[in-house]
């Protein structure tokens, strides 16, 4: 029987759109206190999945193989199909961003593993296509390409966050009081936290990082 988290969901604050708020409505500590209401299995799955999809900067030293191994671990232990849907959505974004950066630098798809998810082979086979033949699935590709061409790293980050935010909203609405809604909240909180951490000082450092990402030639999924 599917678990429902009436108390937990009702104890979480409404999250405002990340582009229109200046305050984080809940601290991480308070969030973790509330998450203790989750069943142990669900809490494990949430933590494992969050480590993979979290918007927080992943260590640059982490290789594509390591990321792929983490992805496979999440897939192997997954008990919630909708969660896998979120993971795939995030990994597809990362894979597409790697492909767009490589192509912008005039490179072709590298040999060996360079992305994850079902679209990797399609992207390789349609490399010359402006949208990799995936415009119906990922209608934001032209906009992302435009931000890359302009070197507008912040615009690109906002677009990616916005697409994830929209997807999480849909999943949350489709599973009222379910584990999926809890996960969607945690992931949206992560995006909001990331967004609000761009204060003056941090924003400058982060902006430099983003510029580096847009212009660099490294290929890691988390780059």
């Amino acid at each position: 029987m599917k678990r429902r988290y009436y108390q937990l969901v009702a104890s979480l604050p409404a999250l405002p759109d990340f582009r229109q708020t200046k305050l984080l409505p809940m601290s991480r500590r308070r969030l973790e206190e509330r998450l203790s209401l989750l069943h142990a299995d669900d809490l494990d799955e949430l933590m494992r999945t969050e480590r993979l999809v979290s918007w927080h900067r992943q260590p640059v030293s982490r290789t594509t193989e390591q990321i792929a191994a983490m992805y496979e671990e999440v897939v192997a232990n997954n008990r919630t199909p909708e969660l896998l849907n979120i993971v795939d959505f995030r990994m597809n974004i990362r894979t597409l961003m790697v492909a767009l950066r490589l192509r912008r630098q005039g490179k072709s798809a590298p040999p060996g593993r360079w992305g994850t998810g079902p679209y990797t082979r399609i992207i390789e086979s349609r490399w010359a296509d402006a949208e990799f033949g995936l415009s119906a699935v990922f209608p934001w590709i032209p906009e992302a390409q435009m931000f890359l061409d302009r070197g507008d790293a912040l615009g690109l980050e906002t677009l990616m966050m916005g697409e994830s935010w929209k997807k999480l909203g849909q999943i949350s609405d489709a599973h009222p009081f379910g584990f999926e809604q809890v996960f969607a909240f945690v992931y949206k909180w992560d995006i909001l936290h990331r967004w609000l951490s761009y204060d003056a000082e941090q924003a400058r450092e982060r902006f430099e990082e983003l510029i580096l990402e847009v212009t660099s030639d490294h290929q890691n999924l988390f780059a």
Partner: peptide, 13 residues
Amino acid sequence: GRGGQAAAGAMLE
């Protein structure tokens, strides 16, 4: 039970 759990959760907020 469902409503009561939600009420208890909302009281935290």
